[in-house]
Amino acid sequence: MSDKIDTQKIAKLARLKLTEIESDKLDGYLEQVVDYIDQLNQLDTSNVQPTSHVLPVHNVFRDDKGSKSKNIDYLTGAPSNNKGHYEVPKII
């Protein structure tokens, strides 16, 4: 890993605000861990298929029959709700 990791850019992608101290610590952490995982480059995997799931994955179908929903009011768990909707700070 020759390029320096752009911690601030990754944090923005991850929607994490970082304090300066957190950012410095994460710089060191990412550098150390990425250096460690770079050992995978010792392996030639050019002819190896990737595994995303250990068992054969197939579509799971069921009969198109209606069933009773659980009748849960999901809004009650929301930090803020209003008139049957989730409420959030202004977007624009």
Partner: peptide
């Protein structure tokens, strides 16, 4: 912070929240 769990109290807009 929208549907459940913790939400920060001090945010002016959605992204900041």
């Amino acid at each position: 912070g929208v549907r459940y769990g913790y939400r920060s109290k001090s945010s002016d807009n959605l992204l900041e929240m």
